[in-house]
Design a protein around this nucleic acid. Structure first.
Lengths: 196, 196
DNA sequence: ATGCTATCGCTACAAAAGTAGATTTAACCA
DNA sequence: TGGTTAAATCTACTTTTGTAGCGATAGCAT
């Protein structure tokens, strides 16, 4: 997008690569608690002050790591039914929260880094926007009442996953995504997200 | 409960008082970001090393602050209808997340302090347990199907609040509690929390 | 090739966070 | 009322985190 690097060539790019690779590796191998600018700098072979200058804090590093890992072409699933779509979304959320440490780390960092908080806000705003199609299609098929609030529906479908896995830190349960998605679909069919 | 102080008398109690008062005041006046052992120690007039020894980290302080502020005799609301009960619960959650900084601070701290994480887990487990009565009474009144899973219902009712206010950091919206609670009640009536 | 300059590395600090151990204080009890 | 001892203070560190300024390096354009 904007912020085109004024000197994209060899060295800066290489520094960026080495640092982001090191950050991801550190996160995967030793977890969020182990993350610090110094550890990542050491591991990448790039000088501490350079990392401080370019990324400011761990939140900044994670923003960049997520940004690189995330897929600009992402589209919401389209399985042919509301329930199928919600289940599919929830499987993605579940995977993001259990298989991959980046999302949870970014959430943790968002409480200490304005950069990280902002990136997360933007990421989620974008995802929930795109997911509005799921509700639109379901309404067109007549599965749910016209006038269903897409955002409220999607949040009802996904929030319990974040709640259990991130806040309550409950043990991961592989059929939680499906269970929660089905509840949300039932609720939507009953018109739970139409009133104002 | 357990962990009876072996020397509860004057000095230790006074130290505890001064430190916890200082911690709460600091949190209220300058927010979670400003919290550090050193700042709280300075403010309370108790020596840094004493605070480090007794509370270990900011998470430990917040655990104690919450513990003191929280009401052992808390019972879930009983308004006569499922929807009324859920709305009442959500108003409490909403207040805890907007009017009072302790809960959000403890959530933030839980990503850095095992003590804080554990305290939060225990606190929520207890609250959700007590709230099971809400579902039981609703079932007895015939409002919702027998076999409704109380925990899933309560999480459906509250999780979107946490999601919006804590994770998405959306602007506070005073009728969000009611909106979300009503959706959950509708969902429960439609049997969204009975299947396995 | 050569000059321009963004960006990196290095040194040298400063401030914050955390720990260890010796010493003093005061609560409790015989 | 005086001895015992848990818990506080105090001193003196080490480690971690973050910053400032300067000289070196290497993309990039002419």
């Amino acid at each position: 997008m904007t912020g085109r690097a004024r000197r994209p060539g060899g060295r800066s790019a290489a520094v960026r690569r080495r640092v982001l690779d090191a950050a991801l590796a550190q996160l995967v191998q030793h977890g969020y608690d182990s993350m610090s600018i110094d550890v990542v700098a050491e591991r990448s072979g790039v000088h501490r002050t350079t990392v401080y200058r370019r990324w400011r804090d761990v939140g900044g590093l994670l923003v960049d790591v997520l940004d690189e890992a995330s897929d600009d072409a992402w589209r919401p699933p389209d399985t042919g039914s509301l329930e199928g779509d919600l289940v599919a979304v929830n499987h993605e959320v579940y995977a993001a929260l259990t298989a991959n440490p980046v999302t949870v780390a970014l959430i943790a960092a968002s409480f200490r880094s304005e950069q990280a908080a902002e990136a997360l806000r933007a990421f989620w705003a974008d995802r929930y926007d795109r997911c509005a199609d799921i509700a639109r299609r379901a309404a067109e098929r007549g599965e749910i009442p016209a006038g269903t609030d897409a955002r409220r529906l999607l949040i009802a479908a996904t929030a319990p996953l974040y709640h259990e896995l991130v806040l309550l830190r409950a043990a991961a349960d592989a059929h939680l995504p499906e269970l929660v998605a089905r509840s949300a679909a039932t609720a939507a069919r009953a018109g739970a997200f139409t009133d104002r």
